[in-house]
Design a protein around this nucleic acid. Structure first.
Lengths: 246, 246
DNA sequence: TCTTTACAGATTGTTAACAATCTTGTACGC
DNA sequence: GCGTACAAGATTGTTAACAATCTGTAAAGA
């Protein structure tokens, strides 16, 4: 029955922060949408895995009509592919597509950084700096997975501070498609230190209320991420084509 | 019964080019989605107008279950707002939001221009230049509405040429939200001439296969559009607050 | 007169059964 | 042995009826 979350398996921390869903139905369907969204985004269901309506009816605990709505929305989010009369499956995003998406994210997020520099309050800035402190500690203790989590939170904070809701929505939508690659870039040797320096620069530019500088810093940061992504993709496919890993 | 299109009123030119829908169901729901999408985007249903499921069942000629799916997708597209147990209405996008959206569009579309400069074939370039010729003629003959249409087509062509499908999807999604403002910027006196010059520069940069220059040209162009949008918005709301039009 | 409550109509949310389509496995003919 | 035709099962698409919720109106009470 696959690894879909059940009604009763609600011990999962619900990791809501990246949901593109706007204020919406308290109705059965909404909860199911969030759950399945989370299941896909967090990799509990695999790319290309089939999503059979009757199974979802059980695992999500919602009627089939609601399941169909949920699948339609997820298709719209780019997380699911549907073919007429042939059902839905989790969409597989390729490495090259991940690269493209990251570049778009860079463009939007640098706009958000610009907005954040204009609108950040002292509290916002303090919060961001606190995150930087956390990140430094996690980096030094070598816990790169948690580092990456706080990293995500910092980006989310910047986006939220910008006050640009459309940007926030789009960034969340794009990020959701990238989970399969989420940890790959930070885990590259030596990348963490650069990453930390880049984030520091972003926060300092925002703290200085310098929009141009903040945008540039964000652009630089994410273009490095994109490059790392592309390079590791290349390495991977080469290895897959016969060249043994060193 | 409002101005929704009927089954039998199919004489409408269907203006498909901007649809964010991916390859999808030939099923009843898909057709209905496209039609309602078009009705909203082309202003045949007004912002804040209620969308009653039973009415749509009739006007779109699809069963109610399909209507509900359609509304969910449109909510996801940001074209419709739904409240639990209270139904759906066409979303009203504010002037300030339109400004925000245009800036995001600028960011993504300049990325697309960059891609277009890299990937454009001679045929692509010829097609773009042909559009420029058309635009010049329409401008000189003063038909600014048709000018604006070709304008849209040129942008779409650039996006398509970039080969970045995610960018194309997002741009279409954003543009769909802006129809209420579509013609406002070109109609501003003197704006058309600048607009034409800017488009020429974009196309020439692409023809020269110079990605940086193309991106910069697109950025410049759309930031002018955004500014015009913001300025006319200000003028309007001032007028609305009591100052009579000259 | 103003506020509150109760009801009726309208509308959305849910459910279950039915129809259409696709997939898979098997038997048959070549 | 190989490919095609057919039938059974699985799955999606459609339909219609029922239940829950909301809106607006009008009567009852202060």
């Amino acid at each position: 029955m696959s690894m879909l979350s059940r009604r009763d398996a609600s011990a999962d921390r619900d990791d809501d922060r990246a949901l593109p869903a706007r204020a919406s139905k308290a109705t059965a369907a909404e909860g199911g949408y969030r759950r399945l969204h989370g299941d896909i985004v967090q990799g509990r269901v695999m790319p290309n895995e089939r999503l059979v309506e009757l199974d979802l009816t059980e695992s999500l605990g919602v009627p089939r009509a609601a399941v169909r709505i949920i699948l339609a929305r997820l298709e719209n989010d780019g997380l699911v592919v549907r073919e007429p009369n042939r059902g839905a499956r989790v969409r597989m995003v390729s490495e090259s597509e991940a690269f493209e998406i990251t570049r778009i994210r860079a463009a939007i997020e640098s706009l958000a950084a610009e907005g954040a520099a204009l609108h950040a309050t002292d509290d916002d800035i303090a919060e961001m700096r606190a995150m930087l402190v956390q990140m430094r500690e996690l980096m030094e203790s070598g816990d790169l997975l948690k580092y990456s989590d706080v990293n995500s939170l910092l980006h989310a904070k910047v986006t939220a501070t910008s006050g640009n809701q459309t940007a926030a929505r789009l960034i969340a939508e794009l990020k959701a498609q990238l989970v399969r690659f989420q940890y790959r870039t930070v885990l590259v040797v030596g990348r963490a230190k650069n990453s930390f320096a880049e984030h520091t620069e972003i926060v300092e530019a925002i703290a200085a209320h310098d929009p141009e500088r903040a945008a540039a810093a964000m652009r630089t940061h994410l273009s490095h991420v994109a490059e790392t992504l592309r390079d590791t993709a290349g390495a991977r496919s080469q290895r897959a084509h016969g060249e043994p890993a060193p």
